[in-house]
Every structure is written in structure tokens, then in C-alpha cells.
Design a protein around this nucleic acid. Sequence first.
DNA 1: TCTGGGGTCCTAGGACCC
DNA 2: TCTGGGGTCCTAGGACCC
Length: 422
Amino acid sequence: MTRPIAISDSANFYVSAERIFAPTLRGVPVIVLSNNDGCAIARSDEAKALGIKMGEPLHLIRDKVEAHGIHVFSSNYALYGDISRRVVEVYEDFSPSVEIYSIDECFLDFGGLRDREAHARALRKEVLRRIGVPVRVGIAPTKTLAKCANEIAKKNPIFAGVLDMMDIRISDWLLPLVPVADIWGVGRKTEAKLTAIGITTAADLRDMPLRQARAIGTVVLERIVLELQGEPCIAFEEVEPQRKGMAVTRSAGTPMADFDTLFQAVTAHATRAAEKLRQHGLVAGTITVFFHTNRHRPDRPQYAGSRSTRLAPMSSDTIDLVAAAKRCAKAAWPKFGASSYGFTKAGVLLDDLLPYEARPLTLFDTLERPTALMAALDEVNTRFGKNTIVLVSEGIRRPWQLRADHRSPRYTTRLSDLPVVR
DNA sequence: TCTGGGGTCCTAGGACCC
DNA sequence: TCTGGGGTCCTAGGACCC
């Protein structure tokens, strides 16, 4: 028999994380906003019941928020990241092999267990007891089927958060009830194509001819069909694969109208990107800078600029990256009429990443800036707080900085954010 | 008028995920 | 007035090579 794979995911993870520190918000509608307080990206069950959609802009649901007293949080990634790490620690007590799939989902090796369902229920109980967030578990011979089981458990309270679909009779019974759009890897476009030829459920898709699946959705869809049949095509990856690229992109709080302001934002993004590289022990070979106007306002003049350049030698040095980013930003800046544009988003992308030790050395390698400088910078900014030391080209006023009017305290990662009890 | 065949590598864009 | 951010994988087509 194929080895059982479980997927455990947290219900409305960001909302659940906020509720750990605000227990009075259990049972009441809560949403968490995207960066810049733009859209609702997590909703409690109560908020979903009020018709708040995933990704809905806050300014379109303001009335609803006020009428129903929906509690609103800005996103607090420092908190969610830390809670996520703690949840994974519990998972590791329940499985010899854990693959972190996203901030709120892990695949677990559930092989060799006498009673998988009891094990999953014990895991749920322990995560709730130690961390305080509810999770759901789906178990199946393949990742795609496990995701299906998880989805079914999510939608049907009768399963009480755990569904084991290792038995083929269970999936034969349940897959006809799963809409094709709910399958992992089937998005809007593929759903439309499948519906057009009468394939509307997971069971229909499972029974589709492989050749036809490939013709409609390339090998990606063909693999999904095989996975639904119980044949594993998507490997369990316990060790994190070497990542290929890295991005830091942000909307601006207020539109950026001149080069200096844009370059301040680009400096901040490149600085953050360099920090992330160093945290991961990587260097980058290519940097791209992009920026564009507000695409939701076609009535206004539109411009999108983007430029890439090689980093030679490959680097994770803030000063190198900012210098290269400046060249890109200048090259991409509009040649005329610049003052008529308001740039609302800018970003820095890094590609061709390699571990620092594996970077190709150049003839002039010994002339490179010593890494001690960046190490000192990181240490100061860790010990005394973000942005204690920045490049001056980042500016002081930061007019591009985004909004976060409803951010909760970083309870688990900032001592100074803890409430003082007298 | 006629003008090979087969391979690799790279990139841009599409689709999808959370 | 106000619409997120950070990833992955796949394919087609062009450039280039012999």
C-alpha cells in the first residue's frame, strides 16, 4: 500500500492567531487585512457567513464592517510566522517527517500507524492545547487526495476536523461530492475548460482519459488525474528545495511622484531583500526593479517600468544591491512626462540565487567589501530594532510607507509589545 | 526557383498556490 | 479617496550551435 500522507492546516489561520491573544473575539466576526490595509485576506467563519469574500477590498465592505461590528486587524506577519513555527514543533512530535508547505499547512508522513484517525485527533487536540489554534487533518495515499480529504473535512462538520481517505471505498463515496474547482491545482481557467466538457466533480476528473487531461491542462492536469486515482506524482519533500528567486514588493501609502521618493522606496525594498538573502545564507546573481502606476485607475496616465541587471560578483551586500537597484530604477524611469504619473507600487526581485559558499569567486574577490560590515549591520538592527541603521537614500519621512492602522502587538517576538500588568 | 535537420538554452508569459 | 505579497512550475518560441 502507498504510504499515507496527512495534511494539516489551520482554520482561518491569521484570524486564529489573532484570537490566541484576544479570546473575546471567539465567536464574533473578525477579518485580517492585506498589507496597506487593502483587502480582507483572512475571515473568521462568522465573517464568511456575513458574505465577506476572500480578497475583497476594505473600502467596498466598510458599511458591512460597521453595521455588524466586524473586528478588523492589519496583518501582523511577525506574529503569524512565529505561531506557525510553534505549530510545526507540535507536528514534529507526531510525525517523523514534516514538509512545510505554507505558513499554515504541513504535509506529514503518517506511515506505520495502527490507528491514523486516532493519531490525527490526538494531534489536533495537542495543537489546540499548546498553541491554541484549531487545525484540520486530511489523510490519503497522495497529496492531492489528502488535500481533498482536508477540504471535505473543512466543509462538513460531521467529520470533526479529521478525514482518513486511505480506503478507496471512502474516496469513491466522497469524490463525487467535491466540486472540481476545489481540487488543489485546478484554478479558474482550468475549471472553465473542464466544466465546458462536463467535468464538474473530483470523481469526473479522476475518471478522465489521461491524454485528454494533458491536452487540456498539460502535464500538470495529467498529474492531478493520476493523483486522484491514488498514484503519487507529487513527491514528499522534507528538505526545503533551494529557492530560485526572492521578492520584496510593496504598494505605496501615497503615490510616488518623483524619482527621489521612488528611489527611497526602492532602497528600502532592496535593503530588506539583502537582509532576507543574508538570513538564508544566499547571494543573488540578478536584480530587477519594477514600479507602476495604479492599474485600478485606467482613467489616469499609466506607466510600468522594469529593468534587470547582473550582480557581478554575486552579492547579498545591501550597498551592492542598492547601487544596482539605483541603476535599474534610473534606466526604467520615464524619459518624459514623469511628473504626470503617480507610482503606487514598486518592487525588487532577486534571481539566480546560490548559497554564499557556492558563489563563483572573481579575480578581484579579495577586493570585495568584507562581510563583517553587513554582519554588524544585521546585529544592530536585530538588537535595537528594525531600521536602527539604514542607508540614507532610504530617506527619513518615508511618505511611501504603507498603512497598518489596525496592527495587533507582536506578542511573541517583541518584549516591548507585551501589555504591562500592574 | 531552389535554401537541412536536430539539438540546447533562455526568456516571457500563463496558470496556479497560499 | 481606498484594491496584497511572495512563491512555483510549465510551455512556446526565439537564438544559437553544429
